[in-house]
């Protein structure tokens, strides 16, 4: 075999391997999408396995009954919580990151270790005592209860500090000479220069809130304030035969962050290549 043919065979093998491995992830997702739009009567009559992957009927019944059950309200609450978490979390973590970069004393190092270390711990593991703390403070059952614990995110603080460290000190000094205080340097120099890190950290914050299930389950007792995940779980039993509605609801739950991730995945790879998360 010539070298050229060998390369061609190798490339063909890699292409096949790439597609096969991709199918491991693509087929279940495809199945979910098809099933969410399938006519419930067809689902019952269909016995063929391949048939479950081919869309033969189209029905919005699942979505309709989800809306009738008030799912849109739950999605709205999840969105409000996630967006507030991104905004509030970026404020909290970028301010802290600036503090750690602008002031380099021993105290700043210790605080950095404490803040990032504690925030790397998923707060869900503290959910049980956190419920008592929040109930005592009268914070249970509302949007603040969902948002507050998610504001502290170790990776977000770490990312932003890493990005701020890469801002040339000469620039900050030049601004200082021009009489710019810390707040102005933070706002007019550091934040605009670190947009990719802000986007990456914003994604991390969004996903952490959007993914949460245990915490909203424990802290929100009023059904009208349930988040999307909790609303789905309250109607879902794994052995129930009507999956249309659950799948339609899951699809909505998936599509919203997927759109965001598709736009930012490349950025995420780029930003984790320049920051220290590896």
């Amino acid at each position: 075999m010539t070298a050229g043919a060998q390369t061609r065979v190798r490339r063909l093998g890699l292409t096949a391997l790439g597609a096969l491995s991709g199918f491991v992830f693509l087929i279940p997702i495809w199945w979910l999408v098809v099933a969410a739009f399938r006519d419930p009567t067809e689902a019952l009559s269909s016995t063929s396995v391949l048939g479950t992957l081919i869309p033969r009927s189209f029905s919005l019944d699942g979505f309709r009954s989800a809306i009738e059950d008030g799912y849109l309200r739950a999605v709205g609450i999840s969105l409000a919580a996630a967006v507030s978490t991104v905004v509030g979390g970026l404020v909290v973590s970028s301010l802290a990151a600036y503090g750690f970069v602008a002031v380099r004393t021993r105290l700043s190092k210790v605080l950095f270790a404490v803040v990032v270390g504690s925030f790397l711990l998923p707060f869900e593991t503290l959910a049980v005592p956190l419920v008592s703390v929040f109930s005592d403070l009268g914070l249970a059952n509302g949007l603040p209860a969902l948002i507050l614990p998610a504001l502290g995110n170790g990776l977000a603080v770490f990312n932003l500090r890493q990005a701020f460290l890469s801002v040339p000190l000469e620039l900050a000094e030049a601004q200082y000479m021009d009489g710019a205080g810390h707040l102005r340097r933070f706002w007019h120099l550091y934040l605009p220069l670190c947009r990719p890190a802000l986007i990456g950290s914003g994604m991390i914050l969004f996903v952490s809130q959007w993914d949460s299930y245990l915490w909203p389950l424990l802290i929100i007792s009023d059904n009208d304030n349930a988040t999307a995940s909790v609303a789905i779980a309250s109607n879902f039993g794994p052995l129930s035969s009507n999956t249309q509605q659950a799948f339609a609801e899951v699809l909505v739950l998936v599509v919203i962050p997927a759109i965001l991730l598709l736009f930012t995945q490349r950025r995420l790879i780029a930003s984790s290549a320049t920051s220290g998360i590896r």
Binding site: L95, G99, V103, F123
Partner: peptide, 16 residues
Amino acid sequence: FTGPALAVLILTRLAP
């Protein structure tokens, strides 16, 4: 600058 982060840390991590 780290005040807000520390407040969140105390309320949602150290307290529980």
